[in-house]
Amino acid sequence: MYAGHFAAGLALKARKPEAPTWALLVGTGLLDILFGPFVALGIERATVTPGQPPGFRLDFIDWSHSLAMSLVWSVAYAALFWKRGRDIAAVLGFAVFSHFLLDLPMHPADLALWPGSAVHLGFGLWHTPYYWWFELACIALGCGYYWARARRLRSFGGHAAWACAVVLALHVMNAPWLSSGR
């Protein structure tokens, strides 16, 4: 999942408008943001699989994406914002964990319980024809909620429709008929 994580960030913004938008978006994407350097450093491994959706295979992502490490990153990220108040720290911590929750239906069984665990989770929507549509449904829900709350509260989302359009455009760019997928 890619754009769906941004939609989750916007939905959390709508739920807690006091939370900084950039921090919510970084939070929802944090596990993927960590994955890049971890692969570069050899801590995690992925293999490119051209023509086979989603275009790569995640061989070892336990340090960024396992259930236990997702919780660790969530708590660590929340701690960074503790001074902004408990509620804001909590929603930012949940933003990080939402990544695991949204990846769970999409990934094949490559989400370990903890680093090195033999048990791996993932329902494998990526390997079905429905993965792009499932993510689209998540985006519709998240962005719809954000857009409606932005119109009602008027304390954020000055260009809410454009923000949603950017998320949707990112998802369209990721469509299987436009690319080999991610």
């Binding site: 900084p20 938008t21 890049g36 260009h159």
Partner: peptide
């Protein structure tokens, strides 16, 4: 799953679009 670059542009852009709406000037009193 994406590399770092896939977040560098969208996050500032979406955050910028999310900024609070400007309140327009108050209409002059009648």
């Amino acid at each position: 799953m994406l590399c770092l670059a896939s977040f560098v542009v969208p996050i500032p852009l979406i955050a910028w679009l999310d900024r609070a709406p400007k309140s327009g000037p108050k209409p002059p009193p009648l």
